[in-house]
């Protein structure tokens, strides 16, 4: 299925600025998912539904026992749930809670951390909805909070609660959290890393490589603020590193060009590393609707899973 990015579809999704004003993470997630599913119905991302691979539009002859009645009640449309094998998906959401995630440009009233937590919450919601096991790892230079991936009553609430009350950490270090995950997770699953990845690239390749070698499916969301990409500052000032506290006199007029070159290089390195490891990479700026980020993510993941070695699912049983 061809994927087309339709701006009109994007504008129909919730404005992140408006969305982030919803203080309750639970409500915020529901607002996103509602918009997301609505888009799902009308979206031309057909491949999306297929990509999502748990749903397929009902066709005559399908076993009505596998109709998803919730969607039917909500949307008046009929979809068949495709059940995986007896092994459900285990997804580990690794959310960066370091100080650099607390950056947010003055034009936005929210930070990268708010965006990342909302994204993680949405993913956890989706996983829970489809009866997959979701877990959470909040980290900065160490693991702040770890919720093992499970599918059980109250798991989503626990994850949302952990995301909501997470306090700002210190600096970023991917090594230890990824080592913890690698040591903690025995069975293969899905590892979703949500971070700004503003750290030396060699550590990233090494750490993600462990997980890839263990057979995990990797997804990397790199969350950046638009100002971090554009570096549109007017006046010279003392720029202070939010993680180290170091202060440097910067004249944006003279520093911008070099900054953007280095940043682009870094982003390219990150993307290349992810591709090398077979990880799905998605660059999300905080001014983009979350639904779009999710959609893009689904699409890319579907493309990657099109390869024969990556899927473990079985086709749904057809109704007789």
């Amino acid at each position: 299925m061809a994927r087309s990015q339709n701006n009109s579809s994007i504008t129909r999704f919730a404005d992140p600025a408006v969305l982030m004003r919803i203080r309750s993470l639970d409500l915020r997630v529901k607002a996103v998912m509602e918009g997301f599913f609505n888009g799902l119905h009308r979206s031309p991302f057909h491949g999306f539904s297929v990509e999502f691979n748990e749903y397929r539009q009902y066709t005559e002859g399908d076993d009505p026992r596998y109709l998803d009645w919730k969607i039917a009640a909500r949307s008046d449309r009929y979809y068949i749930k495709l059940f995986e094998d007896e092994t459900n998906l285990r997804c580990h959401l690794l959310v960066d809670n370091s100080r650099s995630m607390s950056f947010g440009s003055s034009s936005l009233e929210y930070t990268k951390a708010d965006y990342a937590k909302t994204l993680a919450a949405c993913l956890a919601y989706c996983l829970t909805q489809q009866r997959d096991a979701a877990g959470l790892v909040l980290f900065d230079e160490d693991v702040d909070d770890l919720i093992p991936a499970r599918f059980r009553h109250g798991q989503l609430r626990q994850i949302l609660g952990a995301l909501e009350k997470a306090e700002q950490g210190q600096s970023t270090d991917l090594t230890r959290p990824l080592e913890r995950v690698a040591g903690h997770v025995r069975k293969r699953g899905l590892v979703v890393l949500i971070s700004d990845l503003l750290a030396p690239i060699d550590g990233l390749e090494r750490n993600l490589g462990y997980l890839a070698a263990a057979g995990h499916e990797l997804v990397v969301f790199q969350i950046l603020d638009p100002q971090e990409l554009a570096f549109e500052f007017d006046e010279p000032a003392l720029f202070q590193d939010m993680e180290t506290g170091r202060e440097v006199y910067i004249d944006p007029a003279s520093a911008k060009k070099q900054y953007r070159e280095k940043l682009d290089q870094h982003l390219a390195d990150v993307q290349r590393t992810c591709e090398k490891l077979g990880a799905v990479y998605e660059l999300a700026t905080t001014d983009r609707p979350l639904e779009v980020a999710l959609s893009e993510f689904m699409l890319r993941r579907a493309r990657m899973k099109a390869g024969p070695t990556r899927s473990s699912r079985q086709p749904a049983r057809r109704a007789v």
């Binding site: 000032a237 720029f239 590193d241 939010m242 170091r246 910067i250 070099q258 280095k262």
Partner: peptide, 17 residues
């Protein structure tokens, strides 16, 4: 300098003359 600006990282920035 006329102000102080907190920024996520200085890894891509060099001090300006």
């Amino acid at each position: 300098p006329k102000g102080k600006v907190p920024f996520s990282t200085l890894m891509f920035l060099e001090p300006s003359p």
